[in-house]
């Protein structure tokens, strides 16, 4: 897979809209200022895109049943870091891409690669120093002691960063969030709301 580095100028406005909607549906962001959410979405996207490309060290397991669970991939850190790729969901995604004529955005095989990249970022953020950097980049101050500031965690931004990383690393023309929306519509899944369980 060719690595194509996107610059902020290349982000499609719709991609950022998708990211903003994801944040808005994340608990703790009830009714937050949409401009602030947009700023966080953009920062997280840029942060994810800037992450160094790293191979996925997790054990990869391929399973059926993703459509039943409503999942494309899953990363679990215990007992050993494992990345589960749901092959039925990946196949459906490839079919939806072909039906919508999105091959320019998502080349053949890119869904699998994006899923691996997406979960690899979660592994990186979980184990590495990047999480603290993301928090600082977002600049959500929750406490001040004179000049000292305590930055707060912004729920949902890691997910946006993971999607941006996958987009850049796999050379996708559009965010994987666009594909997620298409898959959700194809499967007629109810949208996430605050009163729903939240998956990321």
């Amino acid at each position: 897979m060719t690595v194509v580095r996107a610059t902020p100028a290349t982000w499609h406005p719709d991609d950022i809209d998708h990211a903003v909607r994801l944040l808005a549906a994340t608990p703790t962001h009830e009714g937050r200022d949409p401009d602030l959410l947009r700023q966080w979405a953009l920062t997280a996207t840029e942060f994810g895109a800037s992450l160094p490309a790293t191979p996925c060290h997790a054990r990869i397991v391929q399973l059926q049943g993703g459509l039943d669970e409503g999942l494309l991939a899953r990363y679990t850190s215990r007992p050993a870091p494992t990345l589960t790729l749901f092959t039925d969901s990946v196949q459906l995604a490839e079919r939806v891409i072909a039906e919508n004529g999105w091959r320019d955005w998502y080349p053949p095989g890119s869904v699998r690669a994006a899923a691996l990249a997406h979960e690899a970022v979660h592994a990186q953020l979980h184990h590495g120093p990047h999480r603290a950097r993301l928090k600082r980049a977002l600049g959500h101050v929750v406490l001040r002691f004179g000049r000292r500031r305590v930055y707060g965690h912004v729920a949902g931004t890691e997910e946006i960063a993971a999607h941006a990383y996958a987009q850049v690393t796999c050379g996708l023309g559009r965010s994987p969030l666009v594909l997620t929306t298409a898959l959700s519509e194809h499967l007629n899944l109810p949208p996430l709301t605050h009163s729903d369980r939240r998956e990321n």
Binding site: E30, S77, R78, S89, E119, E158, P191, L192, N200
Partner: peptide, 25 residues
Amino acid sequence: TRRRGVEHTWSLRTAPPKSSQRKRL
């Protein structure tokens, strides 16, 4: 949390087109 660690998923569900979130209090 030690036994099960953390879990992250790429969900097929997406956020609603217009925010249907609970009103922030």
